[in-house]
Design a protein around this nucleic acid. Structure first.
Length: 818
RNA sequence: GCGGACGUGGUGAAAUUGGUAUACACGCCAGACUUAGGAUCUGGUGCCGCAAGGCGUGGAGGUUCAAGUCCUCUCGUCCGCACCA
């Protein structure tokens, strides 16, 4: 790579500065809470063993932001830690016989050193791993407090079970019917588990998205909105007809349905139950249906939900009926594979004319399709009309707009007390039980006398036993000879510990709060520290956490607020979702064999080159295509920067008589300050388009190189090293120390004179097409400019009529001809 | 199907938010220095055309003196949700 001797020796320089920063604890924030603060945070990593380019990109972005704000005089908190509980540690144990704790903490040590080699400006005092017992201690305390407040409960429910991970997953962690981590198909299992009542915060989580509209990518806000999935409608009971009640042995009088379209109740032509509905089970168990039907229903029940979603609509007539509360008409009840058991009572009223699913089902089974909302565009031969319209054949609501009718009909149900306005959410409670070893134990005790009892706070943390055998079969805490044996904290009798551990998303839901107080053994964090540092001013991480982590962390923040721990509503004011790092158009992955090893890049080019390439090649939000020769280009730029620093003669920012400068010298100054202006802009508007700042700095260096004035060179380096320090810190500290005694990492005022040119170029366009340019003094009058333009473009005006002349000061002249 | 984002040179990408399209860089071409160059420096490089000139921001319309930018339709790519009644 470098065959010529060069003054630029990245490895030597970088090691030197990393050591000095470390020894000086250069990036610890001040305790002075009167200073203006910035909390800049990247999502903390899982310590998988080695960093990858995605990490490099993530941490380089937030590091640059942190360094910039330090220069601007802010008290900056830029911490780092480890999301260190989780599956891979157990997989390593199974595969290589390593203890998860040893494997995890060794990985942390290695990765810490890898991150240090990137020159990241972390506060080291606040570092922790979520598997540290101290962290577990406070987390268990939160869980117990949530239990006391009814925010956490235990129940038995059908859950998502991953056969590969041998554990339960929350809904958010199932992606296309597969495990988010191992990609295995999930199955359903009836199991007891602990649930956090995130649904109690559904409305606030939805409402507060408004506060995030300016600071978060629109896409993420929309995804969260859809995930929470609020819908407003009517919930009412459909009563079974007399003979049907008798058929069901009088065990059921009716069932509850939820609809967002009460305006279409006059059009209900059948109702449908989920295959899991208790009425369906009763009919099967009591032999009320013939063999063929029972077999069909059983087939539906056995089909996993995921397959049902793509299967053709299918159903069976249950030979019972309910009464339409508005028309008193008898309506048949079917069981249908498209009705979800987990939503709105597991039963729906079907209006084939105005719901596409109901339409398809009705068409297949020859059920009536009755129009009750009429609109010009509607064609019920082709499909359902779910848009707005005017009610027809709807009793005394006929003629009303369907929107008015919706409210009127809800009111009617409420007045008669046969139904009520209801808001439903798609969001489900968050199941946090995992049947794994390497996680935070759920701090509960099962006592034969007292039932479910939380551990006493003074006994926390409940830590994991070290002497376990990890085989991948079953939960090692369950099979441990003594660990789960304990005394009930309430009655003192023999009792058993809960052996489930927590979902690792619990740990990542509050780590940003723990950073506010450096590793306090007494409490999770000091309130005044949280008051000062929160919320996070800039959060940087991958889009893959758009729902999971970001929703849980938002919830946890609100819950801890209501438990009296903090006074924060939203944890992350601004969010930047960085794009993936690609090679050959695909995400880097070991299986594809298209990875680039950060350590190798740093070893051959240095961290500054890696950082420069990553920030220059694309804006941070976009995908980044790895390109070896562009990396080489980044290296060459730094080398040019070093080599040309010989032109600097002054030790500080020199005063320059701008008017006396040559054209090239003025251009150089202008380019330098344009770069500075651009730099300020990208932080202020939070676009973080480092690529444009770097381009501007390159232009400035090119312009400096086109002139010879050493004062202009000196000023140029003073400013350029300031701009580039967040991007390529090592070489900037090296040069700035040598040239300016590090006096240039501070806010620099832009002298406005550099933007005042004595002549400006105006484009001359004819009918909007650029034809020529004129160079004029900036104070020249409109008339003179127009006449110059006309002379210059005489050729284009021949044989034409000039109909309009437009002059945009500082920009252009447009001559309109016919 | 619904929702969101995005389509600009050979490539990664800019464009002061309606005002000179392609800055900066990679690549490529030429030249200089060199035994040599995969080092360095200098210059060139949207497409068609010998030129004058014409054409150009996925495509088609529209608004405007002026459109990559605004509006309508359309095609394509990516992402999310996916029977939520």
């Amino acid at each position: 790579m470098q065959q010529e001797p060069s003054k630029y020796e990245p490895l030597k320089i970088e090691k030197k500065w990393q050591t000095r920063w470390e020894e000086a604890r250069a990036f610890e924030p001040s305790d002075d809470k009167s200073l203006p603060k910035k909390y800049i945070l990247s999502m903390f990593p899982y310590p998988s063993g080695r960093i990858h380019m995605g990490h490099v990109r993530n941490y380089t972005i937030s590091d640059a932001i942190a360094r910039h704000y330090r220069q601007m005089g802010y008290n900056v908190l830029h911490p780092m830690g480890w999301d260190s509980f989780g599956m891979p540690a157990e997989n390593a144990a199974i595969k290589h016989g390593l203890h998860p704790k040893k494997w995890t903490y060794e990985n942390i040590d290695y990765m810490r050193q890898e991150l240090a080699s990137l020159g990241l400006s972390f506060s080291r005092k606040r570092e922790f791993a979520t598997s540290d017992p101290l962290y577990t201690k406070f987390e268990q305390e939160f869980i117990i407090r949530m239990f006391e407040e009814g925010l956490l409960y235990e129940k038995k429910q059908r859950v998502n079970w991953c056969e590969t991970c041998h554990t339960v997953l929350a809904n958010e962690q199932v992606i296309d019917g597969r495990c988010w981590r191992c990609d295995n198909e999930i199955a359903l299992r009836e199991m007891p588990g602990y649930y956090i009542r995130i649904t109690a915060y559904a409305q606030e989580l939805l409402d507060d998205l408004k506060k995030l509209e300016d600071g978060w990518p629109k896409q993420v806000v929309t995804m969260q909105e859809n995930w929470i999935g609020r819908s407003e409608g009517l919930s009412f009971r459909l009563m079974l007809a007399q003979q049907s009640q008798a058929k069901l042995g009088n065990s059921f009088q009716g069932f509850e349905v939820f609809t967002t379209r009460p305006d279409t109740i006059y059009g209900v032509s059948y109702t449908a139950l989920a295959p899991e509905h208790p009425i369906v089970n009763y009919l099967i168990e009591h032999g009320c249906l013939d063999e063929a039907k029972i077999a069909q229903i059983k087939a539906m029940q056995n089909m996993p939900e995921r397959e049902r979603a793509t299967a053709e609509k299918e159903g069976v007539d249950l030979e019972i009926s309910v009464i339409n509360p508005l028309t008193s008409e008898e309506i048949p009840v079917w069981v249908a594979n498209f009705v979800l058991s987990g939503y709105g009572g597991g039963a729906v009223m079907a209006v084939p004319a105005h719901d596409q699913r109901d339409w398809e089902f009705a068409t297949k089974y020859g059920l009536p399709i009755r129009e009750v909302v009429h609109a010009p565009g509607s064609d019920l031969e082709k499909g359902a009309w779910s848009g707005d319209g005017v009610l027809v054949a709807s009793g005394h609501y006929t003629g009303m707009s369907n929107r008015e009718a919706k409210d009127a009909i809800i009111d009617h149900f409420e007045v008669l007390a046969i139904g009520r306005r209801e808001i439903n959410y798609k969001l489900r409670d968050w199941g946090i039980s995992r049947q794994r070893y390497w996680g935070a134990p759920i701090p509960f005790i099962h006592c034969p006398a007292c039932g479910l009892v939380p551990e006493a706070i003074e006994n926390l943390p409940i830590t994991l036993p070290d002497d376990v055998e990890i085989t991948g079969e079953g939960n090692p805490l369950e099979s441990h000879p003594t660990w789960k044996k304990t005394a009930c904290p309430r009655c003192g009798g023999d009792a058993t510990r809960e052996t489930d551990t927590m979902d690792t998303f619990v740990q990542s839901s509050w780590y940003f709060l723990r950073y506010c107080t450096p590793n306090d053994p007494e409490r999770p964090f000091k309130r005044e520290d949280v008051d000062y540092w929160m919320s996070v001013d800039q959060y940087v991480g991958g889009i893959e956490h758009a729902i999971l982590h970001l929703l849980y962390a938002r919830f946890f923040t609100k819950a801890l607020r209501d438990l009296g721990y903090i006074n924060v509503d939203e944890p992350f004011s601004n969010l930047l979702t960085q794009g993936m790092v690609l090679k050959e158009g695909a995400k880097m992955s070991k299986s594809k064999g298209n990875t680039v090893d950060p350590d190798a890049i740093i070893a051959s080019y240095g961290a500054d080159t890696a950082r420069l390439f990553i920030l220059f090649a694309a804006p941070p939000q976009k995908e980044l295509e790895w390109n070896d020769s562009a990396v080489e280009g980044a290296f060459k730029f730094i080398r040019r920067l070093v080599d040309r620093s010989d032109n600097v003669t002054e030790k500080s920012l020199p005063g320059i008589d701008h008017a006396a400068l040559s054209k090239e010298e003025k251009t150089a100054r202008r380019k330098v300050y344009e770069a500075l202006r651009k730099s300020a802009e990208i932080y202020e508007n939070r676009s973080f388009a480092f690529n444009t700042v770097i381009a501007a700095a390159m232009e400035a260096l090119n312009a400096l190189n086109a002139q010879k004035n050493t004062l202009v060179w000196s000023e140029g380096y003073f400013v350029l090293l300031n701009i580039l320090e967040p991007v390529i810190p090592h070489i900037c500290w090296e040069l700035s120390e040598k040239l300016f005694e590090l006096g240039n990492f501070t806010a620099i005022t832009i002298p406005q004179e550099v933007f005042e040119a004595e002549s400006i170029r105006l484009a001359v366009t004819v009918n909007g097409k650029k034809r020529d340019e004129i160079e004029v003094s900036p104070d020249l009058g409109k008339e003179e400019i127009l006449s110059m333009a006309k002379t210059k473009c005489a050729k284009w005006l021949e044989d034409k009529t000039l109909v309009k002349e437009i002059y945009v000061p500082g920009k252009l002249v447009n001559l309109v001809v016919k």
